Amino acid sequence: MERMLATPADAEIILKLYQLRTETLMREARAWMTGEFWPNTPEEFFAVAQNPADPHNAFFRQVVTYWEMGAAMVLHGAVSAELFVDCNAEGFFILAKFSHMLEAIREKMPTFMNKTSELVNRFTAAAARYEAVLKNVEARRRALTAK
């Protein structure tokens, strides 16, 4: 990726994205998604992701669509890819968290985390960030399994 300076408008978008992440319900949804939801099988994943009756389904949808929106902004040129990647790891964390069953997920949900995946495939900095996060996620999954 060619290194480019971010603009003040890019910085405003990043700050707005951060501000949205601090909203009370969003913080609760993110805490659940990153800390509590660790499905081991596609069935466990779909029990929440495709079940509107599950009390955490809205949290799941809120967090995934938030990060996909951010990735789409980068892909469409609305915000600097380098700045976005430097300031955000959570979207990559979520993609990495489900990487062990991503193929099965996309059989039923073909667009699941597509924008974040495209970001990883298109930008070297995003790929490097994803790989670093993936190692952490794999270690966390092993620790959870060992309990």
Rank of each mutant, 00 (worst) to 15 (best):
E44R: 00
A132M: 08
A53H: 09
L20E: 12
T145I: 13
N136V: 13
A125Q: 07
T24C: 11
T41F: 02
A29Y: 01
Q50V: 08
A72D: 04
R142D: 13
T41D: 02
S117H: 03
L95F: 04
E90T: 14
F45E: 01
A29R: 00
T34I: 15
W32A: 00
R122F: 12
R129E: 10
K97S: 08
E138Q: 13
F46L: 04
D86N: 11
L144P: 15
V137M: 07
E68A: 06
K135A: 12
T116A: 05
E2C: 11
T116G: 04
L25A: 07
P39W: 07
F46H: 06
A49D: 02
A72N: 03
Q62G: 04
T65N: 11
E36K: 13
R142M: 12
H56C: 02
A29E: 00
A6P: 14
I94W: 13
T7I: 08
I14D: 03
F123I: 02
R30S: 04
E103M: 06
N136Y: 13
Q62V: 07
E68R: 02
L5G: 12
V64N: 06
W67I: 03
E28W: 09
E23P: 08
P110M: 04
N40G: 15
W67F: 04
M1Q: 10
N114L: 09
A132P: 09
A72M: 03
G35F: 10
D86Q: 08
F93Q: 06
Y130D: 03
A6L: 04
I94S: 06
M4G: 15
Q50E: 15
F112L: 04
R129A: 10
H56I: 01
M69Y: 03
N136P: 15
W67G: 01
Q50H: 12
L102T: 04
T145S: 12
R122C: 11
R141W: 04
R61L: 02
I13N: 06
R142E: 14
F98Q: 05
T24F: 15
K147I: 14
F37Y: 10
P55C: 07
W67D: 01
A128Y: 06
K16C: 11
A71C: 04
I105M: 03
R140N: 15
P39I: 05
W32F: 03
I13C: 06
W32R: 01
R140T: 15
F37L: 04
A29T: 01
L20I: 11
F98G: 02
